[in-house]
Amino acid sequence: MHNAASGALAGRRVLVTGGARGLGAAFVAALGAAGARVVFGDLLHDEGRALAASLCEQGHDVSYVPLDLSQPQTITAFVDEGAKRLGGIDGLINNAAITYSGGKLATELSTETWDAVMNVNVRGTWLASIAALPHLRDSGRGAIVNIASDTALWGAPKLLAYVASKGAVISMTHSLAREFGAHGITVNAIAPGLTEVEATAYVPAERHEYYKQGRALTRAQVPDDVTGPVLFLLSDAARFVTGQLLPVNGGFVMN
Rank of each mutant, 00 (worst) to 15 (best):
D138E: 15
G155H: 07
G181E: 01
R137W: 02
A199K: 09
A220P: 11
A168Q: 11
T186A: 12
L194T: 07
N188L: 12
G184P: 04
P204D: 12
K158C: 10
K212R: 15
Q213G: 13
G155C: 12
R137P: 11
P192N: 06
T186P: 00
I185N: 07
V169Y: 03
M172G: 10
E198F: 03
P134V: 01
A199T: 09
S165E: 08
T218S: 14
A156Y: 10
E206W: 14
I190P: 05
S165V: 07
H183V: 00
N188W: 06
I170Q: 09
K158H: 13
R178S: 09
L176N: 00
E209L: 11
P157K: 10
R141W: 06
R219C: 05
A182P: 00
L160W: 08
A205Q: 14
I147S: 02
Q213Y: 05
P204I: 10
S171G: 07
S139F: 10
T218P: 14
W154K: 09
E179N: 06
N146K: 02
E209G: 00
R178Q: 15
V203Y: 04
A152M: 12
P192M: 08
V187C: 03
H135W: 06
G155E: 06
A216Y: 13
A182E: 15
Y162A: 02
I144K: 00
R137V: 04
A143D: 04
I147M: 08
A205H: 11
T151M: 12
P204H: 10
G140H: 07
G184H: 03
V169C: 14
A201L: 12
S171N: 13
G193C: 08
R215K: 12
G140V: 04
I144H: 01
K158V: 07
W154R: 11
P204K: 09
E179Q: 12
L194P: 04
R178N: 09
A143Y: 06
T200Y: 01
G155L: 03
R178Y: 08
T200W: 03
V169I: 13
A164L: 12
R219H: 05
L136S: 05
R215T: 14
T218G: 12
W154S: 01
Q213M: 13
R207P: 00
E206N: 10
G214A: 15
Q213F: 12
A164T: 15
P134W: 00
G193E: 10
K166E: 08
A205N: 07
V187M: 02
T195K: 09
S139H: 03
G142E: 07
S149N: 04
A156N: 08
Y202V: 15
T218D: 08
V169T: 10
G167F: 05
H135K: 07
I170M: 09
A189T: 02
T173N: 00
M172Q: 14
V203K: 02
T151E: 09
M172I: 07
G181P: 05
A205W: 07
H183G: 00
H183K: 03
G214V: 12
L159A: 10
T195D: 06
H183S: 15
G142Y: 06
A152K: 08
A177F: 10
P157E: 08
H208S: 00
G142W: 08
H174M: 07
L217V: 13
G184C: 02
A182G: 11
G167K: 05
S149T: 02
K158F: 13
P157R: 08
A152S: 11
P134E: 11
K212N: 13
L159I: 11
I147W: 00
L176G: 02
A182L: 14
G193R: 04
I190Q: 13
G142A: 03
